[in-house]
């Protein structure tokens, strides 16, 4: 078991290393350097030279990569090119806002999707399942910006319930953000519930058609006992990994939704950074997302290992 944990940890470190290389390479090695990207068509020889000097862009990429990783490990991602302030300073509140949005969305999504998924699975191919399953295809396939726009049309323009966009600064107190977070949360909830419930439904069906559930039914156990005692633990266990994947996506901030509602989270900061070629900002946010992804996956792996008696007793 210890070996299993060490192995997972090692894989996470390897994954993060590869991610760091890819992120750095994508932002740094693609045609031109950031100086040319930053100045665009307004580039002058002197401007480029000055910037390359200032950021040490004349040094070899490997050297700069080592420096970037070294600084990042100490929590220093450099200064934003457009705001001339430390990236960490700029990201701090945006991360909080994205966590608020993602946290709320997951709080609604996880119980809702589990409930709907299991009830659809229990009534496989009957009316409730048909409605839930088809509904989930619709919810899952509709692009987030479409759901968001329709919500704005119905709830902001039509009923005047919530503001259609956030006007405050990223560092506004959470209480002020609450009216603004409602519709982005709804958008994310619709999309992710649809997706998660399909998985839960499939797992439920697989578990219910398994031999041990059949055995329990044949023994004459009441249906409720079969479902809650025999089936449920086996349904919930595999969903942990899927939920982790979803959580990392939701908590990292989803840029389309944040742009639709002008919500001051990480996703919108990234889109802005991309439009202004603010390379240190892009690198920091991309890396932060990858760290969250790896962290949640690792967490889910370890959690399933602890919860699953079959894996717990594994020696080796």
């Amino acid at each position: 078991m210890l070996k299993l944990i060490v192995q997972r940890l090692l894989f996470s470190v390897i994954t993060l290393t590869i991610v760091a290389v890819v992120v750095f390479a994508m932002t740094d090695l693609l045609p031109g350097d950031w100086a040319t990207a930053y100045f665009g068509k307004w580039a002058t020889e002197e401007g480029l030279a000055a910037m390359r000097e200032e950021y040490g862009l004349n040094r070899p990429a490997t050297e700069r990569f080592a420096e970037w990783v070294g600084n990042a490990l100490r929590g220093d991602f450099g200064d934003s090119l457009t705001r001339k302030k430390p990236v960490v300073e700029l990201i701090k509140f945006r991360l909080r806002n994205s966590l608020l949005l993602g946290g709320l969305a997951s709080l609604v999504t996880i119980p809702l999707a589990t409930l709907l998924g299991i009830s659809a699975g229990l009534r496989r191919d009957r009316a409730p399942d048909a409605i839930i399953s088809t509904g989930s295809i619709v919810g899952m396939s509709t692009p987030e910006f479409v759901i968001g726009t329709l919500l704005i049309w119905a709830l902001s323009v039509g009923l005047g319930l919530f503001p259609s966009m956030t006007l405050g600064n990223p560092d506004a107190p959470i209480v002020d953000l609450l009216p603004n977070v409602v519709m982005p949360t709804m958008t994310l909830t619709i999309a992710s519930t649809a997706y998660l419930l399909r998985m839960v439904r499939t797992i439920t069906i697989n578990v219910l058609t398994s031999e041990y559930v059949e055995m329990a039914t044949l023994k004459g156990l009441p249906r409720a006992r079969v479902v809650f005692r025999h089936a449920l633990p086996n349904i919930l266990l595999p969903t942990i990994n899927i939920m982790a994947l979803m959580l990392s996506g939701l908590l990292g901030g989803t840029f389309v939704v944040e742009v639709v509602f002008n919500y001051p989270g990480l996703g919108r900061a990234l889109v802005d950074a991309v439009s202004f070629r603010d390379v240190p900002m892009i690198q920091a946010i991309a890396l932060l997302w990858a760290v969250m992804y790896v962290f949640f996956n690792l967490g889910a792996d370890l959690m399933t290992t602890f919860l699953d008696p079959r894996l717990r007793s594994l020696r080796g």
Binding site: M26, L30, G249, V271, V274
Partner: peptide, 14 residues
């Protein structure tokens, strides 16, 4: 581990 749309965004910008 890197969101697909992010990769696309980075390449498209470059």
């Amino acid at each position: 581990a890197i969101p697909g749309l992010l990769v696309v965004l980075l390449i498209v910008v470059a």
